[in-house]
């Protein structure tokens, strides 16, 4: 027997639900429990912030573009097809 109120989420459950929370895929009820847990739990608040930062880092990845030669080649091709 635990003393946990059934609708209270554990931190382990919070970790499982974090993407559903961030994707706005939780029911209103679950979302409320999630947000209530965040108010009093520093660990989970930090976890959610880390997830948001992780997403931000992914979006900050830069790839190089095509080389100048490849672009010139494409432009030649474009001129060719539009004649």
């Amino acid at each position: 027997m635990t003393r946990r109120v059934p609708e209270e989420l554990t931190c382990a459950e919070m970790v499982r639900l974090v993407t559903d929370f961030l994707e706005d895929a939780l029911s209103l009820e679950d979302r409320t429990h999630f947000e209530q847990h965040l108010v009093f739990c520093k660990g989970c608040a930090a976890y959610v912030r880390q997830m948001r930062k992780t997403i931000e880092a992914s979006s900050a990845l830069k790839g190089e573009g095509l080389s100048a030669e490849a672009q010139a080649e494409l432009l030649r091709l474009f001129k060719g097809t539009c004649k």
């Binding site: 003393r3 382990a12 739990c41 660990g43 930090a46 976890y47 930062k53 931000e56």
Partner: peptide
């Protein structure tokens, strides 16, 4: 008995600028 499923080793805050 008191905190089932709660963090025993909670994550700690990251310094904002170092993530990026």
């Amino acid at each position: 008995p008191r905190w089932p499923g709660h963090w025993s080793a909670p994550p700690t805050a990251w310094a904002e600028e170092q993530v990026l």
